[in-house]
């Protein structure tokens, strides 16, 4: 079957996107190929076929988000949807309503698609089980952030081509990072190898959990040595008050990326960051804004990836 909107075969074997861990290589390729078409369309400022016209999309954001929500909304509008937004900073339980009731109430107003962000891992699977809507995860606790993983993979693929046997370093708070997990799953499935590094208190405690493609480095030098791409994770300030990090000064000194450290990576290695950046902490400004940085490309690719997910999971062929 050919999808008219993109002119490429566009069928996924999955109905929801709770994460990338269980997404097959073929589905990943389809998502990335479709996203690439959308990205090219965005660059040419094309009008897109309105495959989401008449599809009711609800953005359920139980946790603060600016860029992910805006990115999803942009993607939805470009495909002809009129999204509804449900935003709450506290959990639904704090208001006395269960998540199940909240979701089923909104579903009853008519919702074909839920884009959900929640502070608890497993919420996308929970919604997929308890509602009839297509569920796309926009971040669940420390578990997954699949569209971020896809946009990172797309960005790397645009510069590096096939990601098989590529070496990717992820540096920072791995333990609490859904971005790291989604990247780990996508990159492993696509054949890349991943090295993890960060403060001992923020590294995985079970190094074998992620399979043979993923290793924990022994030093920042080992993590960066010959890497094709370096991904820096945002450091959360509350890690200091919870006793996991002494200071941002020490973090910058031990884990921050500057020019001299970047030289350890392969010449021209990509620098990625999911944002928002703590400038001068995870990465110095000269590197974040430098020639090897693809941080702003990630943002544009984010819209293309979310268009691809929505289109393939919920779009109607025009």
């Amino acid at each position: 079957m050919t999808n008219v909107a993109t002119g490429i075969p566009g069928v996924l074997s999955i109905r929801h996107l709770p994460g990338l861990r269980e997404v097959s290589r073929q589905d990943l390729q389809t998502l990335l190929d479709t996203a690439q078409r959308f990205r090219e369309g965005l660059d040419r400022q094309e009008n897109f076929p309105k495959s989401l016209a008449g599809v009711s999309v609800v953005n359920l954001f139980f946790e603060n988000s600016t860029r992910t929500r805006l990115s999803f909304e942009t993607a939805q509008k470009k495909l002809g949807a009129s999204p509804m937004n449900f935003t709450t900073s506290g959990s639904s339980a704090a208001k006395g309503e269960s998540l199940r009731d909240t979701a089923r109430n909104i579903e009853s107003m008519g919702a074909d698609v839920f884009v959900v962000r929640h502070q608890s891992a497993g919420v996308p699977q929970f919604l997929a089980k308890h509602t009839k809507a297509v569920v796309i995860n926009a971040g669940d606790g420390a578990c997954e952030h699949p569209t971020q993983g896809l946009l990172d993979a797309l960005t790397m693929r645009q510069h590096l081509g096939d990601l098989a046997h590529r070496e990717v370093a992820i540096i920072g708070d791995i333990r609490h990072s859904r971005v790291a997990r989604s990247n780990i799953w996508a990159l492993s499935t696509l054949g890349a190898r991943v090295r993890l590094w960060g403060p001992a208190t923020l590294l995985p405690r079970s190094p074998l959990a992620f399979g043979p493609s993923v290793s924990i480095a022994q030093s920042i030098e080992e993590a960066l040595e010959g890497a094709d791409a370096v991904m820096l994770l945002r450091i959360q300030h509350e890690r200091q008050s919870s006793g996991m990090l002494p200071s941002l000064r020490e973090y910058r000194q031990s884990f921050g990326l500057d020019h001299s450290r970047l030289k350890l990576a392969r010449p021209g290695a990509l620098v990625l960051h999911p944002g928002p950046i703590n400038r001068g902490i995870e990465v110095v400004s000269e590197v974040a804004d430098g020639a090897q940085s693809v941080i702003l490309e990630q943002v544009t690719n984010g819209v293309a990836v979310r268009m691809a997910c929505l289109h393939l999971l919920a779009g109607k062929n025009p």
Binding site: G141, A142, H176, R181, R205, S206, L208, A209
Partner: peptide
Amino acid sequence: HEGEVAERLGLRG
């Protein structure tokens, strides 16, 4: 349980 499953799911062990 704090172990590989918790690590994969991002759940506090």
